[in-house]
Each structure stands twice: as C-alpha cells, then as structure tokens.
Design a protein around this nucleic acid. Structure first.
Length: 949
RNA sequence: GGGGCGGUGGCGGAAUGGCAGACGCAUCGGUCUUAAAAACCGAAGGGGCAACCCGUGUGGGUUCGAAUCCCACCCGCCCUACCA
C-alpha cells in the first residue's frame, strides 16, 4: 500500500523548512526585474476569515507565478492596526487597545502562516507601532506645510454610537448610517482637520486614463469626483433689498451647467445656511425664514435621507437682478440647494430643470421656456364650444390629425398633436379663423402661445406670464385657481409629456441669443458672459475635501498644538512621534480619553514656550493605509531617529528599486475611499519630491466576495461562516487554496460549497498518487508512439493555457485545466507510457504548474522526485508549440448552419480538401440531396458550412 | 431617478462570431464488499426507438453561422442619488 497524502503533516513541515531556508527573504537585485505585488492589508480583528483566504491566496498564486517567471518579487504583508474595534473592546473588556491589537496580530500571524503564502515577513509593518505612525504624523506635517491640511469649523457627519466624525464616504445608504456600526449619523458643528484633496480633483480624474485598473473602479471614481462643466454667473441682490451694502456685497454668484438657459431663470434659491440669507430677508419674512432655517438644520440632525421628499422653501422677500435681461426675480431659500456644492445658491430655471420645475409649480413661480424642444412636438387642446362650425372640417381639410378628449364636467375638447412648424402655422391660422369672441386656445410644447380671437400672446417672460394669466382669469373664472400659465397647462393631463424637457436645443425667448442652435448655445453664452463681465466658464467638482479628524483615542495623534498666543502651531518634525499615552482611561462615555488626559493635553508651545494645548483628535485610519505600500519598502525606517522635513520615509535605494506597486489586489468596497486617498497621497508625495511617478499602483484587480453556502453574505448571526482554521485541519491549506480558486471567476466571488471542495481534495489525492504510488502502470500494452505524442500534447497545451489564464487571473480555468492534465496522467498510468520520459515530463510539468496554487504538495512531491532546490525557485515551464500542436482534428460539417457530419482529418487540411470531404460525407449528402449548393464556407481550419437552397 | 455588472443543465461554472455545457459537484448504473463508506470504471441538457427536433431570461435584427454583435423589454445584484 502506497503512502497516503497527509497535508496535516506535510504543510507545517514545509512552512517551517521554508522559513529555515530563507526561501521568502527578499533582496534587491539590480540584475533582476522587480515585481512589487501588494494585496490589501488586513485589519487585525483577531480572527482570520475565509474572506481573507479568498482575497489573499489567489494573489499569492499570482505572485509565485511571477517569481517562477524570474522576477524578483516583493509580496509583503502588514496590519492596518488602528481603528475603533480595539477601543470598543477596551471599553467593554478593559483590555488596552494596544495589547488587544498586538494579541490579535500575533494570533493572526499564525493563521496567515497556515496559508502557506510567500509573504516577505521581513517587510511587515503594523500601523499602530509608534515607529510607523511617526511617519504618518510626518506626512501630516508635510501636507500642512504644503497648505494641503487645514482646520475648519463646519457641520460634519457624526456617529452617535462610535462617538466620532466620519468622512463623507463612510456614511452609507438611504438612511445615512455609519459604515462601521450602522447607526444613523447626525450633524454636528466641529472644528475639524481636512485635507485639500479637491486641489487634485482634475489630476485624479486624468490619472485614471494612465492606469490599468478595472473600468468599474474608474467609473466609480469618475462619478465620485463628479466633474461638471458650466459657468459661474453673477446675479446681484436688487439694491433696494440690501440697502447698506458695500460694493460687491450684493453679488450672488451661482454655478450652472446650463448658461444657455439663463433667460429662463425666473427666481433664485439659496441654501438655508447661505450667509446672505439673514442680510436680505425682509422684516415681513423674518419669522418664516427663521423657522425654516431652524427646521432645515434640525432636519439635518434627524434624517436627511427622505427620498422623493416634497419640495419645501420660503421666500426671503428680497429680489435679485438677472444679469442677462435685468429681470427682477424673487430670492427663495430651500433645502434642495446644498451649501456644500457650488456656491450654495442657484439660479432656478424651472422650464428646464426638474427640481426647479416642481418647486415653481408648488409655489406659483413663473415658468418660462427658453430652449426649443429638439423633437419639435407641440400640442393644443380646444374646447369645442370655443370654435365656430367648420373648425373640425378645416382641420380635416388641412390634413391635421386630432382626437376627442373628454374632460369631466368641462365637456368635449379637440386634442391636436402638432409635429412640425408648418403644421403649427396652418393650425394657428385655422384657429384664429374659428375662435369665438372671448375664447382662446393654447399651443404648448413649442411656440408656447395662447391664441385669442383677437391676439396671440407668447409665454416668453415672467411679465408675459402675468399678462396671459390676467387675461385668462378675466375671461374664465375657472382659471382663477392657477397662479401661472404653466400651472394652468399642467392641469391638462394630456399636456404632461410636452411641458418640460432638459435637452439642449435652439434658444428661444432669449433676446439676441434667440435662434442660437443647441450645439453652440452653451459656449456662445459663456463667451458673452465673460465679455460682459458677469460670468465666466467654470468647472465644479462633487469631490469634497477629506475630513481626517476622529474624536477617538486609537489612532495616530494629529501632531498639532493650539497656543493661546501663537494660534495653531505644528509639532516640530524632530519631536515626532506624538505618542499615545498608555495610561489613558477608557470610559463608556464615548468621549476620547485623550481629552481628559492632562499629561497628553498640556504642552509647552514650541514657538513661544508658553502653556498650550495639544490637539486631541486622532487621524482617520485611511491616513495610515494611504502610504503603507511605501512603508513596506523599508519598515520603520529611521526607527529611533529624529526626523526632519527633508527625510524620506524609506531607504531611497530600496524605494528606487521597488516602487511603484506593479500589481494591487483587493475588494471593490474601497473604490471611492482608500483607492482615491492613496492616489491623492501619491500625487502629493510627488509634489514633495519623494517619488518620481504620479500613480501608486499600476494595475489593480478586484476580487469578489466569498458567500456562505446559502448564497448570503457570511456572518456569525446567520451561522453560515466557514472557519478557515477548521478547514485547514480537515483538508489542508493546499486544498482550500485550490478550491477557492476553482469556485468561479475571482472577480465575481460566489457561495462556498462544502461538497464542492471534495472534487479538489480528490485532485490533490490524485496528484499525490500519480507521483508517489509505485504500483499503477505497465499492464501489457506495448509502448505506443501515438499515445506518447498525445500525452505530450496534453501536457504542453496545459502549460500554454495555464500560463495565459494565470496571467489573466482566471484561476478557475487554471485549476480546471490542471485537473484535465491529471485525468490524462491517470489514463496513461495503466499503459506502457508509465515511467517513460514523456510521463516524467508530463508529471513534472503538472507539479510545476500546481506549485503557485498548492505550494506544499508540489514542494513535497518535487523534492521526492528532484531533491534539491525548492519547486518555487524552478523556472516556469515553457511549452513546445510543436508538441502542443494537434495532428488530427474533427472537421465539423454544417448544412445551413446545422451540424450534419464530423470527419477526422489531418490538422492543416486545406479548403479544397475539406470541401471535398465534407460534400462526400453520406449524412451531408442526404441533407443536400435535391438542393442547390449556393455557397461553401470554410472557417477556422476546422469547419465547413454548406449553404443550400 | 442616474450609472454599472450579470441572467447558460439539478448546482458552481466553461465557451466572447464557428461542435453549447470544458472542469468539478450532485445524480444514476457497474466493480470491489456480508453490507455500507471510500476508491475505481461508465452514463448523463430536454424530447424521441430512431432519423431528427428543441435548447444559453423574452421578443426582434445583423450574419453562411449568434450564448457571444445590434435594438427593445423583463428579472436579479452592486454603486450612487435634490450635485444646480
């Protein structure tokens, strides 16, 4: 009986041996091409999850493959060790965050080692080590010196459970809850440190084109940065509404993406927090405005998320002047205008902006269309009592289609859809000829006219709106309920699809610009605004500055000091790190212990020597992870030494060799957080002249998520968690690794299946038995050239296919193809090929190709066959194109696209021969009998399609 | 509302213009066994004795040929959301 495969024995033995041999020691070697491979570092929660295996072991396989290809590979690991869970554990269990974290890291190191990954442990970094966060603080000072860090008193999102502020991207969902604990956030006004990431908005956008990242991430970042092009236009508060104004004080700048709609701006809306609100509100509106502003701020505190919320707002009593036509327009406040975007004020163009349209209808504000409908559609509704006999016949005579509409209690109407200018002209003429005195009908969608028996009025201004309504209300009491012409029209359900649009189109009702085609309108108006000195082209970004202050203990202290004499003063570089005091008290009040720690808080001002106070906020942990892939290069560089602004956080020779990251892998959930911050960091580092490149990671791959057997996210509460430690005991790390890679495309993730892993376990057993079992074989078949060639072909095709698949991170098909090679070897084992040169070649190839996937079994078997250097330093096998080539192929014969025959032919058969063979096939003959062959297609060297009719 | 990804046997999935279902799981039959498990060998998309027919969410289109390309729709998941 042959020796059994026992991963439980083999795996720890090799893991220890590799450490002893220094197999994964990394040394810079200028003669070798480097490959810097990083997988996102774990948070030391205390227990390794199968998700970590899913993220890390395929990365390890890819890194090992690079190494076997001859690259000098750096594949480091570290811990993102600051963060709330440690502090919460401290409050709950009394364990100090530092001890708690280090104990977790210690446990996790062991778990990580059980993966058998080729981590460069010499390069490990732990972000909560003072020698690490010394540099995190150094970066803060550098950013501060560059004017990229600033302190601002502003409303921020606050998690009442975690007792800290959150960055915008850490607030999730419709109910705006905390990313970490799920508690809905509230608004708080606090003095906070921020980084000017917005200064790099355009570069962050442009840089995306230079990196090989998934389109999905690029799209998410593009949307998050949210560039929009338009113009800044200066409206002014009407002089009588801001009596004591200094010059320029009444200027009310707005950002708009649609300067071509300026003539349709019939009112303005300010954010409730806008500084001008209190200045311009008239005494009569004071009470209402005050109440609304207060309600708006409270609403922020409770829940801002109300989707599809009814529009609300209050008139300030003040007016502004529209710079393009001098129109006097009312200024309102409303919470749909955000203080944090653009200028906190908008010009409202209700005819072409849906939010403004809703608002105007609700509050009776005039709506004036200023962009023609590109589709040319218009509609008219005429009460049959408004027109004289013969109207209907005239419509028919002119070939104008119409239908009858019945409006309850108002009788019968003609509904006339109008599709062209000519039709509208003809229709207007007929209408005018048939309208009874005192009656009217309207044309909406285009033209925007009300045709009276004696006049035509056009809705081309707020004044016209008033005039039209005056006349309609005078003519018909029913219209008294409507405040604007558009409100009157919107009462007619049949009009609903032509009243509003936001397309670009020919400008109308816009003074001298009327008639400007949509393609030019925006540019033309912008140029004119600049020339008039009332506006200019402008670009706005949705991206906000990065809020990094956290009101918690367990983070890197912000190295700043507040001095009553000198103001905000930075800690001198040479004094870093600002160390977290170990004797802090963790109380369940939620307040940061640093706030109450006198020894930490009270300092001497480095500038004047007087008493001063230390900043007690710590930094967002994304700050630590923004530069950890630089820290790996030389862990804890200059440990124990004083720093200066001219330092480099890593050994410069090492940095020059390894940087930047060639391949990065990790989850998609960081698309608009870590992955944007670290790009910002690198661009700032380039401006500090620390690095000569613009992007931190050249290639990125996002793996999917491993789910529970029930296809749901794994969670303890669902009880669907697969614990990796148990799995290692049962199956061994190699089997888990291979199974996780086999389960499906890496980027998609998928459900764990405890049955499915059996197939991979059998594979490992088979590989083992193929190499170890001395019994199979021989039989009495004679040595067969053809069978040898076939085994070699399979082996070389496998090398070829596995190489291209591993290159593309298609691990699932890599494993499938290795299984197929296993099948071929199993079949060959009971033939005379067993033990031949071809057999040895195929088996060695299998072991080499398996090595990145299953490092232990491949090493054990390789050493048994070839005692000496590790399988992991062997050269990745090359395929022989000749050996891989098929010599017989199946010629598929189709008749009219359906398969009617398959013929074995020599590979490389020419068209004439293929055609002849195909047509001679008896079944094919049967299908073309009695029909005319129209065409014969020969494709791909292996398919003939005979087209008959 | 906007954007993205996806829909293929009982299941995970392969095939990105040329034999649909590679590889594996589960299933069924067989060998071994007192028996079962394991292991090994074999079968297998559905229908039909067969020739064949039908099959990649639905409907159309392009093509000699479509899971694959185009159009419309349905369903699922993810991201985003009053961004002017």
């Amino acid at each position: 009986m042959a020796e059994k495969y026992t991963p439980q024995e083999i795996e720890p033995r090799w893991q220890a041996q590799w450490v002893a041999d220094g197999l994964y020691k990394v040394v810079e070697d200028p003669d070798k091409e480097k490959f810097y491979f990083v997988t996102m570092l774990p948070y030391p929660s205390g227990d390794l999850h199968i998700g970590h295996w899913y993220a890390m072991t395929p990365s390890d396989a890819a890194a090992r493959y690079r190494r076997m290809q001859g690259y000098n590979v750096l594949f480091p690991i570290g811990f993102d060790a600051f963060g709330l869970p440690a502090e919460n554990a401290a409050i709950k269990k009394g364990a100090h965050p530092y001890k708690w974290t280090l104990a977790n890291i210690d446990h996790m190191r062991g778990q990580l080692r059980s993966m058998g990954a080729m981590w460069a442990w010499d390069h490990e970094t732990v972000s909560c080590d003072p020698e690490y966060y010394k540099w995190t603080q150094w970066f803060f000072l550098k950013l501060y010196d560059m004017g990229l860090a600033y302190k601002e008193f502003a409303p921020v999102d606050w998690c009442p459970n975690c007792n800290t502020t959150l960055a915008r991207e850490q607030v999730w969902g419709d109910d705006r809850h905390c990313e970490r604990c799920g508690t809905p956030v509230i608004k708080k006004e606090l003095n906070q440190w921020k980084f000017r990431i917005t200064r790099y908005a355009q570069e962050l956008l442009d840089g995306l084109e230079t990196i090989d990242w998934p389109e999905r991430v690029k799209t998410m970042q593009t949307n998050w940065i949210g560039r929009s092009e338009g113009a800044e236009v200066t409206f002014t508060v009407a002089p009588d509404c801001l009596s004591d104004a200094q010059p320029g004080e009444g200027d009310l700048g707005v950002f708009t993406t649609r300067p071509d709609t300026l003539w349709g701006a019939t009112f303005m809306v300010l954010a409730p927090e806008h500084p001008l609100v209190s200045r311009i509100t008239t005494p009569a509106q004071q009470a209402a405005i005050g109440a609304y502003v207060q309600q708006a701020s409270r609403l922020d505190e409770i829940a801002r998320g109300a989707v599809d919320k009814e529009k609300s707002g209050v008139f300030t009593g003040a007016y502004a002047v529209n710079p393009v036509n001098g129109a006097r327009i009312p200024i309102w406040i409303a919470d749909y205008v955000l203080m944090t975007y653009g200028t906190g004020a908008i010009m409202a163009v209700p005819a072409h902006d849906e939010r403004d349209f809703d608002f105007a209808l609700k509050f009776g504000l005039p709506i004036v269309p200023v962009i023609d409908r590109p589709d040319g559609r218009a509609k008219s509704v005429i009460w049959d009592g408004s027109v004289t006999e013969g109207f209907e016949a005239a419509l028919q005579g002119a070939g104008i289609a119409y239908k009858y509409l019945t409006i309850p209690e108002r009788g019968r109407f003609f509904g006339v859809p109008l599709e062209s200018d000519a039709e509208i002209d003809a229709f207007t003429a007929i209408l005018q000829a048939h309208l009874r005195p005192g009656h009217w009908a309207d044309i909406v969608g285009r033209r925007w006219q009300v045709v009276f028996d004696d006049a035509v009025m056009t809705l081309d201004s707020a004044a016209a709106d008033e005039a039209i309504m005056a006349r309609c209300q005078a003519g018909y009491d029913y219209m008294g309920q409507f405040r604007t012409t558009m409100a009157m029209w919107s009462d007619v359900a049949w009009y609903s699809d032509v009243l509003f649009h936001h397309e670009y189109g020919t400008m109308i009702h816009s003074g001298a610009f009327s008639g400007t085609p949509g393609g030019r309108a925006k540019a033309d108006v912008t140029a004119w605004l600049a020339q008039q000195g009332v506006g200019k082209a402008a670009i706005n970004y949705r991206l906000r500055d990065w809020l990094i202050s956290r009101q918690r203990y367990w983070g890197a202290p912000i190295p700043m000091i507040d001095c009553p004499t000198c103001g905000t003063v930075s800690v001198p570089y040479g004094d870093l790190p600002v160390v977290l005091p170990e004797d802090a008290e963790f109380l369940p009040t939620g307040e940061s212990p640093l706030k109450f720690h006198a020894g930490f808080r009270n300092v001497t001002c480095p500038q004047c020597g007087g008493d001063a106070e230390r900043e007690t906020d710590t930094m967002d942990t994304f700050m630590c992870s923004s530069w950890y892939h630089y820290a790996y290069v030389t862990p804890y560089h200059k440990a124990g030494q004083r720093l200066s602004p001219n330092d480099t956080p890593w050994d410069e020779a090492q940095g020059a060799y390894w940087l930047p990251v060639d391949q990065y892998t990790g989850g998609i959930e960081h698309a608009t957080m870590h992955l944007i911050y670290t790009r910002f960091f690198t661009k700032a580092m380039r401006d500090m002249e620390l690095v000569p490149f613009d992007e931190p990671m050249l290639r990125l791959f996002n793996q999917g998520m491993i789910l529970g057997e029930d296809n749901e996210k794994m969670s303890k509460s669902r009880g669907n968690v697969s614990a990796p430690d148990d799995l290692v005991v049962r199956h061994g790390a190699d089997t888990i690794r291979a199974y996780l890679m086999f389960i499906g495309p890496w980027e998609l993730g998928g459900p764990w299946n405890s049955k499915g892993i059996e197939g991979v376990a059998r594979f490992m057993n088979d590989v083992w038995n193929l190499a170890v079992d001395g019994e199979g074989q021989i039989g009495n078949s004679s040595y067969d050239e053809k069978a040898v060639r076939e085994l070699r072909r399979t082996a070389h095709q496998t090398i070829r296919d596995v190489t291209s698949d591993i290159e593309a991170f298609k691990f699932n098909t890599v494993v499938a193809k290795l299984m197929a090679l296993r099948n071929a070897l199993k079949a060959a084992r009971s033939t005379a090929i067993y033990g031949s040169a071809a057999w040895d070649e195929a088996l060695d190839s299998l072991l080499l190709l398996v090595a990145p996937i299953a490092p232990h079994i491949s090493e054990e078997l390789w050493q048994r066959r070839h005692p000496g250097p590790s399988v992991h330093v062997q050269r990745w096998p090359a395929w022989d194109a000749d050996a891989a080539k098929e010599d017989v192929i199946t010629l598929v014969v189709q008749v009219n696209g359906k398969v009617r025959g398959k013929i074995e032919v020599p590979a490389g058969v020419d068209e004439a021969a293929a055609r002849e063979l195909a047509l001679a096939d008896p079944n094919v003959q049967r299908h073309i009998a009695g029909k005319t062959v129209r065409k014969v297609i020969f494709a791909g060297g292996s398919l003939v399609n005979i087209v008959v009719a």
